[in-house]
């Protein structure tokens, strides 16, 4: 098994204070390994983005880590002061965000962004930084990179801007690269290109990639390991084949069955999971998915299921799945 780059241990994050607080993440444990792409899948509000922000030390002020650890290498960054977190951001952990149209400053050139991304290497001189920026732009598939440096973001297409954002993330030579819904705003062709690029980067960067998406097709295509989130909990984790071919949690199965790409022949309606993701304000008293689960029993509604580790990197949080195995 390869080196652990980052790990989340029993992490709980809450926004605000009771009684209006939101328990955005509850007892989540996850390990990210070098050379692997870990996919995180879940509906809106499942805690995917909170997890990403926690890993890069960018949780908003209203958020509190109520328990657990966020380890980057051997360092626990949970609760570190801003100045110490800043040393992590863009150096050990980099992040690419969802919307390439707004993620770059309209008043700064591409070159300016790429120089800023190397602000810690300023000592090596402007021309060296410039050369490296061109090199990384070429690596992420930006045509005629030298000419792009003097252009402004609004002069580039969405796909190009996202490549620039990826280049910026790579320039800090991170151990962990977080890609938060980076293909959601792009069309299908561009999405395929960006996915292809990420897969190439996996072998090139000496670190881990965390790929957050609600597109199961994209997850299946590039991830090695998949973690399924629901309402702030990690409900199932496993290698990508297992998650798609032998899912254990009813939610994972339901998600897979709702993927439009799986529908064969003409269908009148898109399948969907009845009900909505709950906003969790108090610790649940049963399985959080029970109200939407077609298989839920009395046990599911009254007892909180614990995380059951089935194998290395394979686990599930479900009474029924555990009793079956």
């Amino acid at each position: 098994m390869s080196r652990d780059v980052a790990s989340i241990e029993g992490l709980s994050v809450a926004f605000g204070r009771p009684p209006t607080q939101v328990l955005a993440l509850r007892s989540v444990s996850l390990t990210l390994r070098a050379g692997q792409i870990t996919g995180i899948v879940g509906e809106s509000g499942s805690g995917k983005s909170t997890l990403a922000l926690a890993l890069i030390g960018l949780l908003p002020q209203a958020a509190r880590v109520t328990e657990g650890a966020i380890r980057i290498g051997n360092q626990n960054i949970a609760g570190l002061p801003e100045a110490r977190l800043r040393a992590i951001r863009g150096a050990r952990v980099s992040m690419v965000f969802q919307d390439p149209m707004t993620a770059l400053s309209p008043s700064r050139t591409i070159g300016g962004h790429l120089l800023d991304a190397q602000h810690r290497d300023r000592a090596s001189g402007r021309s060296a930084l410039r050369t490296r920026a061109i090199e990384v732009l070429r690596k992420v598939g930006v045509p005629d990179p030298a000419a792009q440096l003097d252009r402004y973001p609004h002069q580039l297409s969405g796909g190009m801007r996202q490549r620039v954002a990826i280049a910026m993330a790579l320039l800090g030579r991170p151990e962990l690269l977080i890609a938060d819904e980076i293909t959601t705003a792009l069309d299908v062709t561009l999405e395929a290109q960006i996915l292809h690029l990420l897969r190439e980067l996996r072998s090139e960067i000496d670190g881990a990639i965390l790929f957050i998406s609600h597109n199961l097709g994209a997850i299946a295509e590039i991830c090695d390991q998949v973690a399924v989130f629901y309402a702030g909990e990690l409900v199932e984790e496993g290698p990508v084949r297992d998650i798609f071919h032998s899912p254990l949690h009813p939610y994972t199965r339901a998600l897979r069955d709702c993927d439009p790409a799986r529908i064969e022949g003409a269908a009148r309606h898109l399948p969907s999971i009845p009900g909505e993701t709950p906003v969790v304000r108090a610790p649940p008293t049963g399985c959080i998915f029970a109200p939407r689960c077609s298989l839920a029993t009395e046990l599911c509604r009254t007892k909180v299921p614990v995380w059951a580790a089935i194998a290395e990197g394979r686990g599930v949080r479900c009474h029924l799945a555990v009793s079956k195995t």
Binding site: I88, A103, R108, A117, H119
Partner: peptide
Amino acid sequence: GENHVRTARAMGLPPHRIVVTYALRL
């Protein structure tokens, strides 16, 4: 609160650079 300021923070830029170059200019 703009996304590009968040990008600047994610790069680990010092606060004064974020405020002046990324936020104040616009």
